[in-house]
């Protein structure tokens, strides 16, 4: 998993709970990297799961909510850092469609080793977008937070329904309807 996810996560924790919480998470999560992350590095994705678990215990907040919130948080980071990905789309559906067809393509060029989820999109009429999520990481909550933030970014109001197609959450269908 890309280092940016770790650095942004720890930034978020530091901003809301202070660095002491960050220090605790690192000390208590048994990380092979010992918590020394750089955004340009690549790290074992088990570490992020471990960090989220520790945070969940310490804050008594369920992991899905943490992921969803983190999704919302990191969207702002992306929107700030990679503005050019947003200039091609002027509405949420167009942008969501471009995630697989454009953004992921470009990311892979820059980081050939990046392990990204796969999306399939399908428009149903003018007001609904079906978006399939495939990933062994089963991080559809993270995706949920991002989707919600996209709608917010384009100032669009829509209902996001989520249907789990597998028990482990590796295949999920989002139905986004305005």
């Amino acid at each position: 998993m890309k280092g940016v996810v770790f650095t942004e996560f720890l930034e978020m924790v530091e901003a809301s709970h202070g660095y002491e919480m960050v220090d605790d998470l690192i000390n208590e999560s048994d990380l092979s990297s010992e918590g020394a992350y750089t955004s340009v590095g690549t790290y074992d994705h088990h570490e992020i799961i471990a960090l989220f678990s520790t945070l969940s215990k310490k804050t008594t907040t369920p992991i899905p909510i943490l992921f969803r919130n983190f999704g919302k948080y990191i969207f702002d980071v992306f929107a700030r850092k990679y503005t050019f990905f947003f200039s091609n789309s002027d509405n949420a559906f167009d942008f969501l469609e471009s995630v697989e067809s454009y953004i992921h393509v470009e990311v892979r060029k820059l980081y050939p080793d990046a392990e990204l989820p796969r999306f399939e999109t399908k428009r149903v009429g003018n007001t609904t977008l079906e978006m399939m999520y495939y990933s062994n990481r089963s991080m559809s909550d993270f995706a949920m937070g991002l989707i919600e933030k996209v709608l917010e970014y384009y100032n669009e109001d829509a209902n996001v329904e989520r249907i789990y197609l597998t028990d482990n959450g590796s295949q999920v269908q989002f139905i986004i309807s305005k």
Partner: peptide
């Protein structure tokens, strides 16, 4: 941690 991360970066 930041020193290690910087070196790594």
């Amino acid at each position: 941690r930041e020193q290690i991360a910087r070196k790594e970066a």
